[in-house]
């Protein structure tokens, strides 16, 4: 069936990234600088202390490197893809094909993400690992669980970017939404400040919002900050959020499509 076309989109997206080699070098270099800047800030903040609130500097460095795909993946690409398709009317081209547009977006951007993992994340992790040092996972279990958490993290981030992109059907611009998403993400996801440094009520609240699965939980699981039961439980909650947000995207797409076919975009 035509389901076979979706992996082909992922592969095409992956291939298309190879065309712009300079962009790959620029992204990898940019990410490397960003990681080293974070490490420098963390080192200064620890000021020689062995640990702060029970967290050691190597743990924080590892956290900074592994806190989800947010750091490496250009989620704004989804927003702009959808936003541009709406603004220029190119979304009609997708409707002319026997395709489901959100599934097309998912497969295309998973191709982009796979490319960024291979070309950027792994090399950056290796460089930082060899120069600064990266902690091993807390246990084999935590190391293995890091991968489904990383996948959930990317899917939640993709879906949030998709939701904002689809709002362009009503707002006709995705630009302002990118800032909105970035601001929310920085604060709630734990990308800048891990939730364990926040006051308990805030940490508890943020810990249940879907954003925490984007940055905080993948790194926290890797570092063994969640025990076995909590790791499974939070993976379940993450999947629950994923289901809810996917349903929201599908509902919004149905509404957007209806608006498009009734009002012509």
């Amino acid at each position: 069936m035509r389901a076979a076309s979706y992996p082909a989109f992922a592969l095409t997206a992956f291939q298309s990234r190879l065309v712009y080699r300079n962009q790959v070098w620029a992204s990898a270099f940019g990410d490397l600088v960003s990681i080293f800047a974070r490490i420098a800030i963390l080192t200064a903040a620890f000021a020689g202390a062995a640990q702060v609130d029970g967290i050691t500097l190597p743990e924080m460095v590892t956290y900074a490197l592994l806190s989800g795909p947010l750091l490496y993946w250009e989620y704004s690409r989804v927003l702009y893809d959808v936003g541009d398709a709406v603004r220029t009317g190119d979304v009609a081209v997708f409707l002319l094909k026997p395709l489901h547009y959100p599934s097309y977006l998912l497969s295309t951007h998973s191709g982009h993400f796979a490319f960024e993992c291979v070309a950027i994340v792994v090399p950056v992790a290796l460089i930082v690992g060899f120069t600064v040092g990266l902690l091993p996972p807390a246990s084999l279990f935590h190391g293995l669980m890091f991968f489904p958490y990383w996948a959930v993290s990317w899917l939640i981030l993709f879906i949030l970017a998709c939701l904002c992109g689809l709002l362009a059907f009503w707002l006709l611009t995705a630009f302002s939404l990118e800032w909105f998403l970035m601001a929310i993400m920085s604060l709630f996801s734990g990308a800048i400040i891990p939730l364990w440094f926040l006051p308990t009520p805030l940490a508890t609240l943020f810990g249940y919002l879907p954003f925490a699965w984007i940055s905080y939980y993948p790194a926290a699981v890797y570092l063994g900050k969640l025990d076995v039961t909590a790791t499974w439980l939070h993976l379940g909650i993450g999947l629950f959020w994923l289901t809810v947000l996917s349903a929201a995207v599908l509902a919004l797409w149905a509404k957007a499509r209806h608006r498009l076919i009734v009002q012509g975009g």
Binding site: M1, R2, A4, S5, A8, F9, T12, Q15, S16, V19, Y20, G89, D90, A92, V93, L96, K97, P98, L99
Partner: peptide, 27 residues
């Protein structure tokens, strides 16, 4: 469908690759 003012081809890829994607889309 062909829209004179909208492209259905993949901008960065060789024409052949766009055709190949259509092979998958239309099975």
């Amino acid at each position: 469908v062909v829209f004179g003012q909208r492209s259905q081809l993949w901008w960065d890829l060789p024409v052949r690759d766009s055709f190949d994607l259509n092979r998958h889309i239309y099975d």
